[in-house]
């Protein structure tokens, strides 16, 4: 694999059942490309947490995944309410998800910590009332 390719996904709003389809698609593509299974899993988990966040907190969004020989970069853009305090949001266990989300198995406050744990780089840019952009990178080796 020597080329750099970008794959884009639209994450639909308010459709909890379909959340994860983009991450599932990336996971199969990376597997087929012969990427190391540990790296595939890290990318899949980090992106899945991000995708779930877009459905829970925003009204869906867009994900661009760029695969190069050196790294996999995921850029997640939503036009949701934005994050008021990013440092607080990064704390394990802190969540603003509503109770109905907890009954669905999410909203434990582990999403952002997990995204940090499984990536080599995590950057969050957020503006209240405008939206959030999450940039994650996983190195190929």
């Amino acid at each position: 694999m020597s080329d750099t390719i970008t794959i884009s996904y639209e994450v639909p709003a308010n459709d909890f059942t379909r959340a994860g389809e983009a991450s599932s698609s990336i996971k199969s593509k990376l597997k087929k490309m012969g990427v190391d299974p540990q790296i595939v899993r890290k990318v899949a988990i980090a992106m899945y947490e991000g995708e779930i966040n877009m459905v829970i907190h925003a009204t869906g969004g867009k994900i661009d995944v760029t695969i190069s020989p050196e790294e996999i970069e995921m850029i997640l853009v939503d036009h949701g309410p934005g994050i008021e305090d990013i440092d607080l949001a990064m704390q394990a266990g802190y969540s603003t998800a509503p109770d109905n989300i907890r009954t669905l198995g999410f909203g434990a406050g582990m999403g952002l910590p997990n995204m940090k744990k499984y990536t080599d780089e995590l950057r969050i840019e957020s503006k209240l009332g405008v939206g959030t952009t999450v940039i994650m990178k996983v190195k190929m080796e």
Binding site: K42, R102, L104
Partner: peptide, 24 residues
């Protein structure tokens, strides 16, 4: 029953026991 707790745990060849029953 919390999927993010499951996602925090990366091990090979594991089994998940849960009382949560949805596509996620």
């Amino acid at each position: 029953d919390m999927m993010s707790d499951v996602l925090a745990f990366m091990k090979d060849q594991s089994v998940l026991l849960t009382g949560l029953c949805n596509p996620q």
